[in-house]
């Protein structure tokens, strides 16, 4: 029997130390729907949006979150007992915010669970308060579990094979999110692979749960 446990803890943060041009916004759809502000002295992934205040316009652009998570912690376990093996990979991301516009789309259609009261308030505040779209991107995911069985030689020696193994695995099995997140999968980026402008959710497909049966035979 052997048991192998592996864990990787990863954390990073960024700060722009030098910017030879004035601060500028990038990514997103506009400040009233969440954008990223590249500003000297601040995190490169800070999310800005409209926040109500006493100014003549009624609102001003303020930092309202940061897309960068506090840390990423992955766990790998590999247990082998006799011919059986069990492998599991899980990942925990803590912190970071995302802009959930899927809920905004549901609000506009009047089909969010908390319509008409809470969603009516959100719609009335649209344009003046972007903080209502900011939700936590914390998640715990069970990415893969694989159960394998190494077949005894008697089962496959008639084929002339050297070894054979069957396994069943499941991927994207479990997603546990913070209670402030109302979407389906917080690992999201509406604009694809972007260095800065990630974590914007507009009705994306969540990752599918999949199950695999594998038979591997070595000759």
């Amino acid at each position: 029997m052997s048991l192998l446990l592996r864990s990787i803890f990863f954390s990073n943060s960024s700060k722009i130390v030098e910017l030879p041009v004035p601060a500028f916004r990038t990514g997103g759809f506009g400040t009233n729907l969440g954008q990223f502000l590249i500003e000297q002295g601040k995190s490169a992934t800070q999310i800005v949006g409209n926040v109500p205040d006493a100014s003549p316009a009624g609102f001003s652009v303020q930092p309202i979150g940061d897309a960068n998570p506090d840390f990423l912690w992955s766990f790998v376990g590999d247990l082998t007992v006799n011919r059986f093996s069990l492998y599991a990979l899980a990942e925990w991301q803590h912190g970071g915010q995302l802009v959930n516009l899927t809920e905004f789309i549901y609000d506009l259609g009047g089909t969010t669970v908390d319509c008409p009261t809470a969603c009516g308030q959100r719609l009335a505040a649209f344009g003046k308060d972007t903080r209502q779209f900011i939700q936590s991107a914390t998640y715990f995911k069970l990415r893969e579990v694989t159960l394998g069985y190494t077949l005894p030689a008697s089962a496959y020696s008639w084929t002339g094979a050297r070894d054979a193994r069957v396994s069943v695995s499941g991927r994207n099995l479990l997603v546990v999110t913070g209670d402030k997140y109302t979407g389906m999968d917080p690992e999201v980026s509406n604009f694809g692979n972007q260095p800065v402008a990630r974590n914007i959710e507009v009705a994306q497909y969540p990752r599918s749960r999949s199950f695999w049966f594998t038979l591997s035979v070595g000759f």
Partner: peptide, 23 residues
């Protein structure tokens, strides 16, 4: 693709932070 063609351009407020509407 975007509700702001109606919510921002007709309802308002026009926001200079919207690159394709007020701004």
């Amino acid at each position: 693709g975007d509700p702001r063609f109606i919510t921002e351009l007709l309802g308002g407020p026009l926001d200079g932070g919207s690159p394709r509407f007020g701004g």
